[in-house]
Every structure is written in C-alpha cells, then in structure tokens.
Design a protein around this nucleic acid. Structure first.
Lengths: 205, 205
DNA sequence: TTCGATCTGAACCGATTGGTCTAAGTAGGG
DNA sequence: CCCTACTTAGACCAATCGGTTCAGATCGAA
C-alpha cells in the first residue's frame, strides 16, 4: 500500500526505476523525458531500466496509470457525512479545490490531456480514477441525502457531474492556462460558495 | 478577414507556410510536427520557411495564437437577444456545445493545455480568445437581461463563468479523455437543459 | 565460498531532429 | 530584357533520441 515498496519485486531496483520515471515524466511529459535522464535520475543503468520495461511507452503508461489511480483516493474523500448538507458540501469542496489547484493535479491533468490521443487508455484511466471516482462518491452521498429529504435530485449522477463542473469555474481554468499562479483565498471562497449556492438553488430541499 | 490571404505579404509564399504549419501543428502538436513535414505539406522549401520564421517555436506561437483568436469569434456568437431568456440560453448553449465538442476545438484545447507551460503566452492567448471572450459576451447579455428584470444576478461575470462551467459537465470531459467519440444527441440535450435549469434556478427572476 | 541472478557503465547503432548553406531557378516590375 | 528579390532542392551538420550489447562488478542465498 506504500507504493515505494511494491510486493511484486521483479528485481532489486524495480522501485527505483518507477520512482525516477514518475519524477521525470511528471516534470517533463512523455516526449520531454529522455530515457537516459530517467535512468540517471533513478540511480540505475539504462540496461536495468530496459530489463524491466522493454519500451519507453510501456514505462510511461505504467507510471501514469499508477499515478492516476493514486491521485483521487488521497484527496477526494467524501467523509463527514454527518454534517448538514451545506457544511458537508463546503467541507468537501474545499479539499476538492485544494487538490484541483495543486501543482501535482495540474501536472497530471496536463499530461493526460496532452497524451490521451497517443495513449487512449491513459485518458480513460485518468477519467475513471479522477472525475468518475468523484462522481461515484458524490452520487452515493447524494442518494443518502435524498433519502433523508435533505436534497431533491432526480438524476443523482448528473447532479454530481454538475457539482464537479461548477467547482472548475474561474480558478481551475485560469490555473490551467497560466493566468494565475496562486489563487487568492478570498476568490477560492467565492467560487466554492458560489458553486454551493447554485447547486442548492437547483437541488436543495 | 479571410485568413488565407493576409494583407501583410512579406513574400509570395507566406500564406502557404502558415497554412501548412496550421494543418500540421493541429494534427501533430508542437513536438510531433517536424519542420520538414510542415515544409512539404505547405508546398514550400525549408529555406523559404526559415526565411519567414527563424525558429520553429516562433512559427508555432504565431500559428497557434492566430488560431486561438479566430476560434471563438466564429462559433461563440451571442445573437438573438430578442428571444426570451430560456430560449436565448438554449440557442446559445447549442452552438456553444457544438463548438466545444468539435474536433477542431478539442485539438486546439489539447495543444494549448499541453504547451501552455512551454509557451506561457499561448495559454493566456487561448484563455482570452476563448473562455474570456465568451464571458464578455455572456456578461453583456446578462447585464441587459438583469436590467429588463429577466434575471437576478449580483456578479454578472461570475455567473457567466458558472454557465460556461456547467456547459462542460459530462460530455466535454468525456470527449477530452476519449471516453466517447460522438456524443448522443439525447445526452447533449440533457446536459444543455440541465445546465439551463440549474442556472435559472439560481439566477432566474 | 560459491553460484546464478541482477546490475553496471559505456560504447555503440540507426534514425530523426532543428537548423544552415549553396548554387541554380523563377517571377515580375521597370 | 534585365535586375532584384524571392524560391528552390537537397546536401549537410551537430545533437539527441530510443534502444542494444557486452564484459565485468555486485548482490543474496545456500
């Protein structure tokens, strides 16, 4: 579960290779990352690297998929379902926003968008472990909230998609296109509160 | 205004170079597009190309910026302001959605996301000619609608950003990550109507 | 200590890249 | 017709790329 020490050890330096590849790919993208540089950064010879991954593409897909799978689970938790709806949404929106605007999420988003036609499965992996996972969790919560009469939603999954979308208004777009670097906390609150207001205007009980 | 015959003719084959570069860059991205291929596709010698653009990066930025500037103006028109709000929003949402899911917009979006840290100005150019232009036009319309008492909006620009965001729920994300190719017309209507319903629930008079 | 598996470093390969250069060819206004 | 500016094809360059190979160092288990 640690990621730095995979159980399936196909060799002594396997973890090092993956770690180095993750670092370099995240920083440089697929084309930008040379195999020599990855090997050097991993503290491993190129021959060793190629003994594990016979192809640069395979190494990339492996690393990127693993990274996608890990991304959401850590930060997109839907806990605190005991709170009242508005507080719960706010709590969750804050951690979601923090993740969306993090350097890490931005990098992996950029890479997946860029490479998702060269590697179609990568885009799908990203979608499933990112947006879709979030939708699943939101859907579950919404369903319970509807049962408790706290929300009024006909299509729970679609409502989740809309909430997700509202979360990306303004700040997320501006970060992706380098309009802002660090968003103002006040602006973050504005976007979050605005999203919740709009969401509850439609789906509030 | 045609684009194929720029007024500033710095040479006989200038337009050809730009046209070829546009074609290849859009299809292959920055790294993927070789200068030889661009020259061949433009029906021009490499020497001629380099006489206009001393650097591949300059050629790319030139073409990409030009393409960004052209993209929105054609498809993101906010006309028919005579219609009732709901019809107007629907009309506009349809053309907006058609554009967002077009092959062209998807390609340029992908390229701008991917290259916007290699070329920071490119991301900004894209944002200004795409999302921001749309916001400007929506804002203008919203302001008038508020004056006529058809909408109730405190922050017009932010409302525009939310409407834009709602437009990108579901389908847009799924297209970007290659989950769907051609979206079902029924699903398109669902997203559009859902966006308008939510928007009006919050901002309707 | 021994033995097989793993790792190393560097040399090497063919292909492709962005970019330069040259010498000859062509178009069009005077 | 001529002159100038533009265009041409392709040879050429150095650099980098992904990937291979191999003789020898190093490891871990028995």
């Amino acid at each position: 579960m640690d990621g730095t020490a995979p159980e399936i050890k196909r060799g002594r330096k396997y973890a090092q290779v993956v770690a180095g590849a993750r670092k370099v790919f995240l920083a440089e993208g697929f084309e930008g990352a040379s195999v020599d540089y990855i090997a050097r950064e991993a503290g491993v010879s190129k021959a060793t690297l190629y003994s594990y991954f016979p192809d640069k593409r395979i190494l990339f897909v492996e690393v990127a998929k693993e990274e996608c799978a890990r991304q959401a689970d850590r930060a997109l938790q839907v806990d605190r379902t005991d709170l009242p709806v508005r507080e719960m949404l706010s709590h969750m929106a804050h951690s979601m926003m923090e993740f969306l605007t993090s350097e890490f999420a931005q990098r992996i988003f950029r890479i997946c968008v860029a490479e998702s036609d060269r590697f179609p499965e990568l885009g799908q992996e990203f979608y499933m472990s990112g947006p879709q996972l979030m939708e699943d969790r939101l859907s579950t919560y919404f369903t319970h909230a509807v049962e408790r009469g706290e929300l009024k939603i006909d299509d729970v999954r679609f409502a989740a998609q809309q909430f997700e979308a509202l979360m990306k208004a303004d700040i997320f777009v501006k970060k992706v296109f380098n309009i802002v670097d660090k968003p103002e906390p006040a602006q973050v609150d504005r976007v979050i509160d605005g999203a919740i207001d709009t969401f509850l205007a439609r789906y509030g009980a």
